Simulated scan of single mutants.
Amino acid sequence: MSSQLSSHQTVTRSPEGESTAARIRGAVGSLVPGLTLCAAATALAMGIGRFLPTVSPLLIAIVLGAALSNVARLPERVRPGLQFSAKKLLRVGIALLGLQLMLSDIVGLGWGVIVMVVAIVCLGIVGTMFAGKLLGLSWTQRMLIACGFSICGAAAVAAADSVVDADEEEVVTAVALVVIFGTLMIPTIPLLSGILGLSDTSAGLWAGGSIHEVAQVVAAGGAIGGAALGVAAVVKLARVLMLAPVMAVLSVRQRRLAGAGANVKRPPLIPLFVLAFLACVGLRSSGLLPADILANTRIAQTALLTAAMFALGAGVQIATIRKVGSRPFILAAMSTVWVMSIAFVGVSLAG
């Protein structure tokens, strides 16, 4: 009799357990349509990128997402998967971005260039925030644009959003501005470098210090010349490394604003994805990872960020961009010129 009771207890599950399992299956199932759409868009963007190596799959994905959302009405069932990609997959992609950074390469730039990079990020953010305040923009909108234009483009915009929790309209506006103004910088820096008579090395320093996205820097550096490309990429990655301390400072600010009440949700002192990013930087700098693993993780990082950029692009509505008015565009133009000017002064002093 006892064995029968034992057997019965083994195969019977509580209604609460079944409910939990059902909720988990439902939550996972709700992500599938959106994740499938992101996967298809990622494959397409990376495929196009193979034929157009000077164009980043991330930028292609943003354009694809924006085009799709404005041409056709996306069904509601894809929304959960898109939101998951724009937040969770993005953070994993940013963490893996650390595997592209070798601390020895950055130290090899010399202290003068390192100080220049810190000045570009810090003064770029402060100047953009000040100009945005004069224009009457919200603190979160200013911060998203400041981080995107001073650090590393759309990835920095999304990283800042994960800390300051901006409105979706502000996020998609900042991402759209990064794409527009960063793309305009690709021919502008090589052209101005030629007019000013800069050497390839100086032009590469200027490109890496002033252009928003890593891929945009690579495109501009390649247009200048081989010597410029290597320098530009390392300087840009040094700016990417500044993502960690900036996000930590923002997180500390948000914790202070949140207060210390029992029912107040406070952000972590240092976001988990920032710690993961720093761990990846340390792992890459240790030299322990074989080349084939680094190559595979680079592909994975590109795919994750491409999926996240498509999801962010899918939130870009032309009507929304029109609604925000001209002030964010004016701030983006001012920030671009400001960061470019700081970088040029730094290059002149370094030279």
Rank of each mutant, 00 (worst) to 15 (best):
S341A: 15
S162K: 01
L294Q: 08
I62G: 03
V117A: 13
L192V: 09
A67G: 04
A319R: 10
P187R: 13
D200Q: 13
F273C: 01
I321C: 12
A155Q: 00
A248S: 12
R13S: 13
F344W: 13
I321R: 05
A174Y: 02
I94K: 00
V324P: 03
K236S: 06
L96Q: 03
I180N: 07
A131I: 04
V157M: 01
V339S: 11
L250Q: 06
K236H: 05
T173H: 02
R73I: 11
S3Y: 08
E16W: 14
L64Y: 09
S202G: 09
G49E: 14
I211P: 07
V78S: 06
I180Q: 04
L52M: 11
Q83C: 04
G204A: 04
P271I: 11
A203D: 01
R23F: 13
F277I: 07
G93I: 05
L144C: 00
Q216P: 04
P290E: 07
R255D: 00
A39K: 12
P328H: 11
G49M: 07
S7Y: 02
L31C: 09
V63R: 07
V281T: 08
K236R: 10
I186L: 05
T201I: 10
V121T: 04
A279T: 11
A160V: 01
T297H: 07
S341V: 12
G351T: 14
A319W: 00
Q254M: 13
P33G: 08
A45H: 10
R253D: 01
A262S: 14
A350M: 14
A207M: 10
L177K: 07
T302R: 02
I114M: 15
T140Q: 09
I145G: 02
I94V: 14
A119N: 02
F130Q: 06
Q254P: 04
T36G: 14
A155F: 00
I330A: 15
P271W: 14
A303R: 04
V339E: 02
T302I: 12
L89S: 01
T336G: 11
A227L: 10
A67N: 03
L59I: 11
I62D: 05
I318W: 14
F84A: 05
A166I: 05
G132C: 06
G226K: 15
I189L: 11
I120Y: 01
S251K: 06
V92D: 00
W139D: 09
H212S: 01
I60P: 00
I270F: 08
L229R: 15
C280L: 04
H212E: 00
A176D: 10
A72L: 07
G17E: 15
W206F: 06
L58D: 09
V11H: 13
V214H: 06
V63L: 11
A21Y: 10
P271A: 05
